[in-house]
Design a protein around this nucleic acid. Structure first.
Lengths: 180, 180
DNA sequence: GTCTATAAGTCGATAGAC
DNA sequence: GTCTATCGACTTATAGAC
């Protein structure tokens, strides 16, 4: 599973063969089918696990009482935590979900869209409360999510960076950089 | 070529077949080979054309005399212009370049790395001149480039947005949002 | 659990008629 | 230029021996 995530990241799902994965694991391709029933199922489990982590993280943050700006901080921390603990798998989110087949595709998109909607809601409240500069919320949410989505790529180059320092710097750059 | 770019964007290079492209164009797969010698060549031409546009844009901006902060603005405008005029092709830059074969791969990476280095140099000067908040330049360049890289995805949803307004908003969010 | 062998299908690309 | 037909390689996945 972890071997597959690394290969999917490097070459993409479509260009990664079961033989590639088998070579990485150190067995023949046929042997993989004793552990996983199909290549498609590997992709589904990787993507839905990450989507679940984000969904659960969002729910925990919503459940706790705190100012909306602190909530934004917690969301950034959530992205950093998942990126650090699941670097290869999270790299699949921006593009490889297109290779999901139904019904997994619908399930994934439902989780993703719900998450983005709730992320956007938190940001909207922070702007409305006057805690963030009055810039176009579309641009703000797009800019913040873009950076968080590409974090895995950046993190891979600076693996020795302290995670808590990274969180602080991102919070600074993405939030207080644009706070009044 | 434009048909191929759209399909590569939607399904990725590896999962797009010559038969897919032919269907889009309205001919049989074999007929494509009268116009292009291989699928790989389509990818190479799409990616290297975009890389060339960035390289030429950077050179034009470097040639002109202006403050480093104005230079950063010009770079953001360059990304917006190329994104608007080549939306499908630019979507291939973040991931699909991995499917380039040598020697095109080396040529592409050379252009990409040189561009990023020069982008970083402009930002470093702006920070050194005290025109930008003293945040980690690694984080700053990563955050700005992440947003600009994902612009194509965002732009596809807001195609009616005025390009000059979009440039202004991005400059505000990415630069003056973090200026002192 | 592992393996070899192979089925059944798809791929990029070519041959050759028109 | 277009097409039909097809080659040879490669794909996911299975059958069946150990």
């Amino acid at each position: 599973m972890l071997h597959a995530a690394g290969l999917f990241r490097k070459k993409g799902y479509a260009a990664t063969t079961m033989r590639d994965i088998a070579r990485e694991v150190g067995v023949e391709a046929a042997s993989l089918y004793n552990h996983i029933s199909s290549k498609q199922l590997i992709l589904k489990e990787l993507l839905l696990e990450i989507a679940q982590l984000f969904t659960e993280g969002m729910e925990a943050i919503k459940a706790e009482e705190m100012p909306s700006l602190k909530r934004m901080e917690a969301l950034i921390s959530l992205h950093v935590d998942i990126t650090v603990s699941h670097t290869d798998a999270i790299s699949l989110l921006p593009n490889e979900w297109v290779h999901l087949e139904e019904p997994a595709l619908k399930a994934y998109l439902k989780l993703r869209d719900a998450y983005e909607k709730e992320f956007r809601a938190v940001l909207d409240i922070a702007i409305k409360e006057g805690q963030l500069e009055k810039l176009d919320p579309d641009i703000a949410v797009f800019s913040i999510l873009s950076t968080l989505r590409w974090l895995y790529s950046w993190y891979s180059k600076y693996k020795d960076k302290d995670v808590e320092v990274l969180k602080m710097e991102l919070i600074q750059a993405l939030l207080y950089g644009i706070s009044r």
